[in-house]
């Protein structure tokens, strides 16, 4: 095992085995897909919910509720199903840190 792969393996174990633990920009990159509608770094210019500074727990819960149908939606009940809980958490962590 090379030194790099040992480091990666350690990182993976340390972060609960998620596949993206070795990419510091994973949350930022994943969240950028949402920005096309919700604005750069979540700063909506209007008509779509702003996601910058959104509480992480609130966002995770919102997407879960979209997926289950508990929260009515036009597109988010469909898009929400494209992400695992861990991926939503990575996205929510990024947006929570945006001002």
């Amino acid at each position: 095992m090379t030194r790099t792969s040992v480091m990666v393996a350690v990182a993976l174990i340390g972060l609960g085995g998620s596949a993206f633990a070795n990419d510091a920009n994973y949350g930022r990159n994943m969240a950028s897909a949402c920005s096309s509608c919700h604005g750069t770094n979540g700063k909506s210019v209007g008509g779509m919910e702003a996601l910058n500074g959104y509480s992480k727990d609130k966002m995770v819960k919102a997407v879960q509720d979209f997926r289950s149908g508990a929260k009515p939606a036009t597109v988010m009940h469909q898009l929400g199903k494209g992400y695992t809980d861990a991926q939503i958490e990575a996205i929510a962590t990024f947006y929570a840190a945006q001002k």
Binding site: A19, F20, N22, D23, N25, Y26, N29, M30, S32, A33, C34, S36, C37, T74, V75, Q78, L79, K81, G82, Y83, Q87
Partner: peptide
Amino acid sequence: PEPMHIANTCYSYVDNKQAVHVAAV
């Protein structure tokens, strides 16, 4: 980078006020 997910959201108007969409991840 670790490959990111990408999404498509595409709206079409059917008159001056009403629209329909297709969305996918």
